[in-house]
C-alpha cells in the first residue's frame, strides 16, 4: 500500500473515531483493473478500506454534496477548488466540511495505458514514484507517469489543495508543466470551417448518457436544460445539432467555475475530449477578466461579478 493511502486511512480513522466527522468520502479499490471507486466510510473499520491510486479520477465534491452531517473529503488541488465552489454556492456548509488535502502528481488515463500496451489486457497497474508499470498475463511494461497521465493533469496549474484541514503529504510542485491555453490552440489556429469540422468530429461519438454532466459538481440545476419540456430547448435525438447544442450549453454553464478536474473526460465511456470547450471558456475568463475559478473562499465566480471596465470586444 502506498504512503498516501496509509495516511488517508490514518486521518479517516482518527476523524471517525473522534467523531469529528460523520463520513469520509474517498476511494476504495475498484472491482476491475485500472479503476478506483468512490466510497463513503462511516466507521473506523470502513476507513481501512480507503485507498489512493492514480485512478481516483472522479469528483468527490459531487459525492460530498449529497451527504448528510459533517463530511471529510479527500481532495487534490482541483477537487479542493470544487469544494471551495460548493461552499461558496451554499451547497455545503464550511463548518460541516473537513478537507483531507492530497497533493497530486497527476491522475492516470486508463485509455492511454491501454494504447501503450497495444490493447492487450491489463491485469494490474503499479505506481512507484514517476514510474507506472502495467502488467498483463504475459507482459510487464513501465512508463513515465507523464506519458500516461490524463490530459487535464498535464496542464494542471494547482496541484496542491487550496483549502486544507488535514494534510496527507508535503506539497508538490504547483504545476503539471503544461500550458492550459495550448489545448485550445489546436482549434484556434484553424479556419472557422475547419473548426466546425473538428467540433463535430470531436463529439460525433457522443451517446448523450450525460455522464459528463452527472459527474460534475458544478451542475446544480434542479432540472437540467436538457430535461426541460416546457419549453423543450433541444431535441432528444442523436442529430448533430441536438448533441452539439447539449455540449455547448453544458460547457457554458460551467464557465468561470470549471476547475479543470477532468472528471467529465474520465467518466465518458467513449473518451470524448470535452475539455476542448471548457478550456476555451476558462482561458477567456483568465484573459479577459483575470479570473481563475474557486481559488479562495472570498472569490466570486467570473460570471457572478463584473467590472465597468470589462472589455467591449464583441459589442458595437
Amino acid at each position: 500500500m502506498n504512503a498516501y493511502a496509509r495516511r488517508i486511512r490514518e486521518i479517516a480513522r482518527r476523524l471517525l473515531s473522534e467523531k469529528a466527522v460523520d463520513a469520509v468520502a474517498g476511494y476504495r479499490a475498484g472491482t476491475v483493473p485500472m479503476r478506483a471507486r468512490p466510497f463513503v466510510a462511516r466507521t473506523p473499520a470502513e476507513a481501512g478500506e480507503l485507498t489512493w491510486t492514480g485512478f481516483c479520477v472522479g469528483n468527490l465534491a459531487k459525492l460530498a454534496i449529497g451527504l448528510p452531517g459533517r463530511v471529510a473529503v479527500c481532495a487534490q488541488g482541483c477537487i479542493s477548488r470544487n469544494l471551495v465552489g460548493i461552499v461558496r454556492e451554499n451547497r455545503l456548509a464550511r463548518e460541516n466540511l473537513t478537507v483531507i488535502g492530497v497533493p497530486c502528481l497527476g491522475m492516470l488515463d486508463a485509455r492511454k495505458i491501454l494504447a501503450k500496451v497495444g490493447g492487450r489486457m491489463v491485469t494490474g497497474v503499479r505506481e512507484e514514484g514517476d514510474a507506472v508499470t502495467a502488467t498483463g498475463a504475459d507482459f510487464e511494461e513501465t512508463f513515465a507517469r507523464g506519458d500516461v497521465k490524463r490530459d487535464t493533469c498535464l496542464t494542471c496549474r494547482h496541484r496542491n489543495p487550496v483549502l486544507v484541514d488535514e494534510v496527507v503529504a508535503d506539497p508538490v510542485p504547483e504545476t503539471g508543466g503544461g500550458d492550459g491555453d495550448r489545448i485550445i490552440e489546436l482549434w484556434e489556429r484553424k479556419k472557422p470551417d475547419a473548426r466546425f469540422e473538428l467540433f463535430t468530429r470531436t463529439f460525433r461519438d457522443c451517446i448523450r448518457c450525460y455522464a459528463c454532466r452527472d459527474v460534475c459538481p458544478l451542475c446544480h440545476c434542479a432540472t437540467c436544460f436538457v430535461d426541460r419540456s416546457r419549453p423543450q430547448w433541444l431535441g432528444k435525438t442523436q442529430d448533430e445539432p441536438d448533441v452539439l447544442t447539449y455540449h455547448l450549453l453544458r460547457a457554458f454553464h460551467c464557465a468561470g467555475r470549471c476547475t479543470d478536474c477532468g472528471a467529465c473526460e474520465s467518466a465518458c465511456p467513449l473518451g470524448i475530449p470535452m475539455r476542448r470547450l471548457t478550456a476555451k471558456l476558462e482561458s477567456d475568463a483568465r484573459r479577459l477578466f483575470g479570473h481563475e475559478a474557486s481559488l479562495s473562499l472570498d472569490a466570486k465566480p467570473a460570471l457572478a461579478v463584473f467590472s465597468p471596465d470589462d472589455p467591449d470586444e464583441v459589442f458595437s
Binding site: K62, R208, C209, T237
Partner: peptide
C-alpha cells in the same frame, strides 16, 4: 445507490436495455 451518478452509461452501453422515449418534433 450511494455513489451512483444517475448517468446513463450503464443503460446505453447495455446490450439488453431497450427502454425508449417517443417524441414528436
Amino acid at each position: 445507490a450511494e455513489t451512483c451518478l444517475n448517468c446513463g452509461v450503464c443503460t446505453f452501453a447495455c446490450p439488453t436495455c431497450h427502454c425508449f422515449d417517443i417524441q414528436d418534433e
